[in-house]
Design a binder for these strands. Structure first.
Lengths: 104, 104
DNA sequence: ATAATAGGCAACTAAATGGTTGCATGTCAA
DNA sequence: TTGACATGCAACCATTTAGTTGCCTATTAT
């Protein structure tokens, strides 16, 4: 879980996921196109995404295809974000109350 | 949005949010209790959470109360995670198909 | 008034991070 | 088979990050 949060913390990596979401199964070179980064930098980001299990790769001859794995993202939503949804209104109410009390 | 992802990337910060979720409105010293970290380290984490707008603070005399703001977490769910929910099954199907093709 | 308490500020450090360059390897096509 | 193409590996660099220590300030309680 920590690995997933860490992987998602970088904007370059989030846009790589966006690109795969737009078109799945891209090669490394395709994913590099239009980015202000060397291929090696992109590789490093992809390795981090792979280690977080957000991307799965398959070698096809001399190229490597990258596939988005949406499961860890879904788990963040289910196991982490939802926890804070419960009690959200209570927390907001409490916050509002305290902020108003401040100005008395 | 980037600030929020960065703030959530650290486990210490996520557990501070957990603590506030369990009991809202705690002081700095209360939040330090039982942690293997100096007060100043905790302060730094709280500043990052504040800058990401995940925590709001109110000064009450000599102490500072910390309140959880669940809105940015909710926004991550709505604006980011949901985007990947759409097409999740398609992506998984594609992934499965390619993984099977690999072994032919 | 003074001591204790709650917190703030700043300088410093070690390690992690995001990036680079240079070179090596494996695969495909002429 | 030789050159071009796709990717991998490793060393290096600058910046950021997570943490520390030491000291300062403001508020409360005795």
């Amino acid at each position: 879980m920590d690995e997933v949060f860490k992987a998602l913390a970088d904007n370059s990596r989030r846009s790589l996921l966006d690109r795969l979401h737009a078109r799945n199964g891209q090669t490394l070179n395709e994913l590099c196109e239009g980015l202000a980064m060397t291929r090696q930098a992109v590789t490093k980001h992809l390795v981090i995404l792979e280690e977080a299990n957000l991307v799965t790769t398959i070698k096809r001859g001399r190229e490597k295809l990258h596939y988005l794995n949406p499961v860890p993202i879904h788990q963040i939503g289910e196991r982490w974000i939802k926890k804070f949804e419960r009690g959200k209104l209570a927390a907001l109410g409490e916050l509002k109350r305290q902020l108003e009390k401040r100005d008395e």
